[in-house]
C-alpha cells in the first residue's frame, strides 16, 4: 500500500549518501585509523599469544586474586584452563584484546561525554536521543557502515563494538555526578575549589561506584557485540560460534559459547570489584604500606 499521498522521505538514502561521502572524502583518515587500530590489536594479540598459555593463565589468576579474592581467582583460573583445554585459547585471547581495546576507546569517549552532559544542558538534550538511538538500533545495522568505512576485519568490529558499548558509561557517569549531594558541591566551592577541583576532588570520587557500574556494563555489552562483530571478520570466539552455527555443530557451538560465558564472567567479577571499596589483597597491601610509612614518620618525628 502506498503511504498516503505523501512521497516517501529518503531517510535511508540520505544516510547512505552521507557514508559514501565520508568514504570518498575522508578515506585517508579512516585508513589511518584502521592501520593504527589494526597495529595495536595485532601487537597485543600476538604478544599475548607468544607467551605460553599456562604462564599467562597463572599471571591472569594472580592479577584477579589481587583485585578480587581467592575464590574468584581460583574459579577464574579453572575456567581459563578449561578454555585452553577446549583448544579455544587463541580465539579467547583475540576476543579479549578486541573487548579490552573497544572498552578503553568507549570509556575514553564515554566518561568525558557523561561529564560534559552534567555541565551543559544543551549537550545533555542533544545526547539523550543519540544514546537512545545507539542503544536501541539493532547492533547488526552498525555492521554495514562499519564495513563500508573500514572494510572487513578487526577494526570495523571494534567500531561497531565501541558504538554499541558507549551508552552505559555515558549514562552512568552522568547519573553518578548528578547524584552527588548539592551541599557537598556547595561546600567545595565555599572552601575555594575551582571547577576542575570540584570535578576531581568531589564529583568523580563520589560518583565512582556509579561510573564503575558503567564500566562493567560497557564490558558486558562489548563482549556480546564481539560475537556479532565476527560476522564481518573480527575473529575470535565469535567466529567459532558462527562456524558452529553454519555447520549446525552442536558440540563446537556449546564449547565456544561456554568459552564466551567464562570470559564474560571473569571480566564481570573483576570489573565489578574495582572501585567497589571492598577489601582486596591489593587494597590490603596498599593499606599495609601506608601504615608502615606512617609508622616511619612517627619514629622520625619522635
Amino acid at each position: 500500500m502506498p503511504s498516503l499521498e505523501l512521497p516517501k522521505l529518503p531517510l535511508g538514502d540520505a544516510i547512505e549518501w552521507l557514508v559514501r561521502w565520508l568514504i570518498k572524502n575522508l578515506d585517508a583518515i579512516f585508513d589511518f585509523f584502521r592501520d593504527v587500530l589494526d597495529a595495536i590489536t595485532g601487537a597485543f594479540s600476538s604478544g599475548l599469544l607468544w607467551v605460553h598459555p599456562v604462564f599467562l593463565i597463572v599471571i591472569f589468576g594472580l592479577l584477579i586474586w589481587l583485585i578480587t579474592n581467592k575464590l574468584t581467582a581460583i574459579l577464574s583460573t579453572v575456567g581459563l584452563v578449561l578454555v585452553w583445554n577446549m583448544g579455544l585459547w587463541p580465539q579467547l585471547v583475540n576476543t579479549l584484546v578486541l573487548v579490552v581495546v573497544a572498552v578503553v576507546i568507549a570509556l575514553f569517549i564515554g566518561i568525558p561525554s557523561g561529564i560534559l552532559m552534567t555541565r551543559s544542558r544543551k549537550f545533555e538534550a542533544f545526547m539523550r536521543p543519540v544514546l537512545d538511538f545507539m542503544q536501541t538500533m539493532p547492533p547488526f545495522v552498525y555492521l554495514i557502515p562499519a564495513v563500508m568505512l573500514f572494510g572487513i576485519g578487526v577494526v570495523p568490529g571494534l567500531f561497531a563494538t565501541v558504538i554499541f558499548a558507549i551508552p552505559p558509561p555515558v549514562r552512568l557517569t552522568y547519573l553518578g555526578i548528578t547524584q552527588v549531594p548539592e551541599d557537598t558541591k556547595e561546600m567545595a566551592i565555599a572552601f575555594g575549589a575551582n571547577d576542575w577541583q570540584v570535578l576531581t576532588k568531589v564529583e568523580l570520587p563520589l560518583s565512582l561506584p556509579s561510573i564503575m557500574a558503567g564500566v562493567n556494563q560497557c564490558i558486558m555489552l562489548g563482549i556480546s557485540m564481539v560475537v556479532i562483530a565476527s560476522m564481518i571478520g573480527a575473529g575470535g570466539l565469535g567466529e567459532v560460534v558462527m562456524r558452529a552455527v553454519g555447520r549446525l555443530d552442536l558440540a563446537l557451538g556449546f564449547e565456544s559459547g561456554l568459552a564466551i560465558v567464562i570470559l564474560a564472567m571473569v571480566l564481570d567479577r573483576v570489573s565489578r570489584n574495582i572501585g567497589s571499596g571492598k577489601q582486596t589483597p591489593l587494597s590490603r597491601i596498599i593499606g599495609w604500606y601506608k601504615q608502615r610509612r606512617k609508622k616511619k614518620e612517627f619514629e622520625h618525628a619522635a
Binding site: 551541599d183 557537598t184 561546600m187 565555599a190 572552601f191 563520589l206 565512582l208
Partner: peptide, 14 residues
C-alpha cells in the same frame, strides 16, 4: 576570608 559550616555536614565520605 570566609569559611562555612553546613546543616548536613557535607563531609566527603571517601
Amino acid at each position: 576570608k570566609i569559611s562555612m559550616v553546613f546543616q548536613h555536614f557535607a563531609l566527603l565520605p571517601n
